[in-house]
Design a protein around this nucleic acid. Structure first.
Lengths: 213, 213
DNA sequence: CATTCTAGATAGAACGTTCATTCTAAACTA
DNA sequence: TAGTTTAGAATGAACGTTCTATCTAGAATG
C-alpha cells in the first residue's frame, strides 16, 4: 500500500480509463446486466485479473460509467447556451426542443433507462445519479435565473423548481415514449411540445413580473 | 391457499395464476433480474418442476407479468372518466394531475422502469408493451375525442397524436424524475403541471375550433 | 361397485452453464 | 532485486432448466 510515483499513477489512470471506455461500449450495446467481465476485458484488450487490479468489483466499473451520466445532462445546458448566441435564453430553450428528433435517436437511451431502473433498487447507483441530478438541477436553475435576468426579472429558487421539474419530466419522458411507441414521429409532437415549453416559460416570466410589482 | 377448480377455470389456469401472483410479488420487491425461479416457487408454494410444467421458461413468466402492465395504464383512463362524473372531460383531465403525489408513491415504479428498460433490449418484452401501448393510445384518443365532442368539436387522429404524446411523456417522465430527485415534492410541481396540461388541452380545443370554421 | 389404468400433477434432486472473483505465477520496470 | 503489472487458469456460487420418480384424480373396465 505504498504511494505510487507520479508516472505509475498516470499509468493506472490510463488503464482505468481504458477499462471504462471498453465497458461503456459493451454496456451501450448490451446493457450492464448482460455484459460479463470477460467481455469487458476482451474489449479493453486486457486480462480479467488485470481489470481486477484496478477495480474492486464489477459494481465499481458500473459506478464509473454511471458517473458519466451527468456529462450527458450538462450537455443540454451547453447546447441551449450555444443556441442562444448570447441573446435571449428563453427563446433558446424553446428552440432547443427542435433537437427532439436527434435526442430520440440517441443510442444511449437504453443504457440511460437501465441506469435509472437500476437506481430504483441499487442504493449505490441511486446515490450517484441523485448527486449528479442535484448538480444538473443547479445548472438548470442558474440557466433559468440568467434567462430571467436578461429580461430584468428574477424568481426565487422555490418558484423556479416547479416549472423546471415539469420541463425535465418532459424530456425524460420522451425516452420512455420512444420505447413504448417506436413509431412515434418527433415532428408530430414538435408543435405541441414547443407550445408547451413556451407556455411554461412565459408563465414563469409573468410570475416574476408580478413579484416585481 | 389452494382453490378447487371450477368449470370455467381449469386447474392449469389456477396454477398459472398462482405462479403469476407469486412472481408479481417477487418482481415488485426485487425486480425480475434478481428473482430466481426457486424464490418464485417458494412464494407460490409450489416446486420448481411444477412451475416448469406450466411455463416454458422464466421469460414466459416475465411475459405474463409484463402483460399486466396494460391494466395499469388503462386505469388512468378510468380514473379520468370517473372524475368527470359525466361532465366536462377536459376539466377532468386537468384535475387528474392532482393525483400526481399518489402516483409517485406507487410501489410499482421500479418494476415499470425495469420493464421499459428491458423492452429497450429484449424484443419479446418490447412487443408486449408496444402492443399494450397501442391499445392504451387508442383509449386515450377516444377519451380526447369524446372530450372534444362534448364541446361540439372534433379533431383528426393526426392532430390529437401530438398533444397526446406530450401528455404521456409528462407522466412517464415523472416516474424517472422521482428516482433522480427523490426529494421532489409533487405539490411544488402541481401548479406548473396543471397549467401546462390545461394549456395543452386548450390549444387542442382552439385548433378544433379553427378547423370547424 | 370395486378395481385398474393412465394422463396429468407434483416434488425435488441433478445437471450444465455462466459468471464474478481469487489465486498463482510470469513479465516487466526502475 | 523488489515492487508492480499482467495474464489466465482455478474456484465456487448461483441459477435456469431438465430428469426421474411418485402421487392423484377420475375415467374405463368388468
Amino acid at each position: 500500500m505504498t504511494q505510487t510515483p507520479t508516472s505509475d499513477t498516470t499509468r493506472a489512470d490510463m488503464r482505468k480509463a481504458q477499462v471504462l471506455k471498453a465497458a461503456n461500449e459493451c454496456f451501450r450495446r448490451q446493457g450492464f446486466h448482460n455484459t460479463s467481465i470477460v467481455q469487458i476485458s476482451k474489449a479493453a484488450g486486457m486480462s480479467v485479473g488485470h481489470i481486477y487490479h484496478y477495480f474492486e468489483n464489477k459494481e465499481a466499473i458500473i459506478a464509473g460509467i454511471v458517473e458519466q451520466d451527468l456529462l450527458q445532462i450538462l450537455m443540454f445546458c451547453q447546447r441551449i447556451r450555444k443556441g442562444s448566441g448570447g441573446g435571449d435564453l428563453i427563446e433558446a430553450i424553446v428552440n432547443d426542443v427542435d433537437y427532439l428528433e436527434q435526442d430520440l435517436n440517441d443510442q444511449n437511451i437504453p443504457l440511460t433507462l437501465e441506469i435509472v431502473a437500476e437506481a430504483a433498487r441499487n442504493p449505490n447507483v441511486a446515490r450517484i445519479i441523485q448527486d449528479a441530478d442535484e448538480t444538473a438541477r443547479l445548472r438548470f436553475r442558474e440557466l433559468l435565473a440568467e434567462a430571467l435576468k436578461l429580461r430584468g426579472l428574477e424568481l426565487s429558487e422555490r418558484d423556479i423548481e416547479g416549472p423546471l421539474e415539469v420541463l425535465l419530466a418532459f424530456f425524460e419522458g420522451f425516452a420512455i415514449r420512444i420505447i413504448r411507441n417506436p413509431g412515434l414521429d418527433p415532428n408530430t409532437c414538435l408543435p405541441a411540445l414547443r407550445s408547451v415549453v413556451r407556455h411554461l416559460l412565459e408563465e414563469a416570466v409573468s410570475t416574476a413580473q408580478q413579484a416585481a410589482a
